[in-house]
Design a protein around this nucleic acid. Structure first.
Lengths: 228, 228
DNA sequence: GAGGCTTTGTGAACGTGCGCACGAATGCCT
DNA sequence: AGGCATTCGTGCGCACGTTCACAAAGCCTC
């Protein structure tokens, strides 16, 4: 049995926090900070120091007791673990409002996720150029994915078109999908899907607001006048 | 009329799923479905049927054994629990790329979160109109929040301006914040913050892609002694 | 080089959430 | 009316994630 077979599995919760640590560490590095303690990193990341240490311990023992963590080395290790040692080109499906905003969001390519292509099904959008990337027809998806070696697809279509977009992405060979459409996508088990849903986030906030307003209001019934 | 209910605390994980159930149920209702089983709802929502039942049980016993749940009634109950019985006006800080896209995203008002205002600090943007809403100066924030009774603020600024935006929102009286900037916001404990971070999502996908590609690549080098 | 101070790394306790499995309730059929 | 099929509601064990607390390990001073 090869030694690399014992590859650690990092808990999902930790994986979700590593990018946050990475950003903070990068910033700190840029500001000339060489070394950082778990305490400080926790403060900047809005979490518990013990959690930081446990999270980082999954990467290996890269800290120095009594001192802290060397920022540059930690940045390197996290980047390696997250697979950020090379670029991951992405393809965006949907050149509507959201697709345009995503394409225009510079932070995309900056952070190692260059936009390899944007496609849409609407002929009127084909050919227009968004932030230097020409919108192409969705039928060209397989070609884009193959030639540019894209493994991450972004679904930025209206809800009704999302499942079709996902199907096409999967058929084209993409293995990870970031879904912005308010739909639960059905995909093969092997495909990794993450969802960003504006409405869900707002509704969660709504829940807390309503709760804050006090069960008192509710006890009486629908006190609030039917607002506009 | 149901008896007075002690206000249950609903688990966060459940709160996060209720909006998904709600959307599915609304769709099903529109399609003429009157009754739905936990099994079917689970299938559409991509979760386990037992989880659906447990989630819904936090709202009360609104199902009928042997039959399922009445769609319309369940929609009503979830909406009530999430505080969606009335609108929650939101104010957007930042009229850049993202702010514009958010304002243009019709689903906002449709789903009960009308845009009460958009503000920016950049004079060149003031006065422009985005989807029927005029961009106003950030100094007008307190006035907007007060007159329109806004309790949810959306931070759509660049990273550097996000903390200031959050501070201003809090001072203006907002109690919930949806943060799109890649920054961990420091806010008073009482303020509810939710974060949507594109880069984080992509990096999580990157982790899985890299993992999928096989740890073999990493087997080279790094002969650091394994810790006991 | 010993002693004290700092900070990591981690075992263990604790809390939360998940999913199975089954009793309970309801509708339908004969 | 009684039996059967269906589906809800939930107790329970398990797995995961969080936090505490402390020993181990390094640096600094004298």
């Amino acid at each position: 049995m090869p030694p690399e077979r014992t590859r650690r599995r990092i808990p999902d919760a930790t994986v979700a926090r590593l990018p946050v640590y990475l950003r903070i560490l990068t910033e700190q590095g840029d500001e000339g900070v060489d070394s950082i303690s778990s305490e400080r990193l926790a403060e900047l990341g809005g979490v518990n120091a013990a959690k930081v240490r446990k999270d980082l311990s999954y990467l290996g023992s890269y800290g120095t007791r009594g001192v802290g963590y060397e920022v540059a080395y930690l940045v390197y290790q996290i980047r390696r673990e997250l697979g950020l040692t090379h670029d991951w080109p992405v393809v965006i499906v949907g050149a509507g409002n959201l697709g345009q905003a995503l394409a225009g969001y510079g932070g995309f390519g900056e952070r190692g996720f260059p936009v390899a292509g944007i496609v849409d099904i609407d002929d009127s959008k084909i050919g227009t150029v968004l932030s230097g990337v020409r919108v192409r027809h969705i039928d060209e998806l397989p070609q884009i994915v193959q030639t540019k070696r894209v493994s991450i697809g972004v679904v930025a279509t209206p809800a009704g078109a999302a499942q079709d977009a996902a199907d096409r992405l999967v058929r084209a060979g993409v293995t990870s999908i970031l879904n912005f459409a308010p739909v639960v996508l059905a995909v093969p088990r092997a495909i990794e899907v993450r969802k960003v849903d504006l409405a869900v986030e707002l509704q969660i906030l709504s829940y807390h607001e309503q709760r804050r307003a006090g069960g008192a209001i509710h006890a009486v019934g629908n006190t609030r006048p039917a607002s506009a």
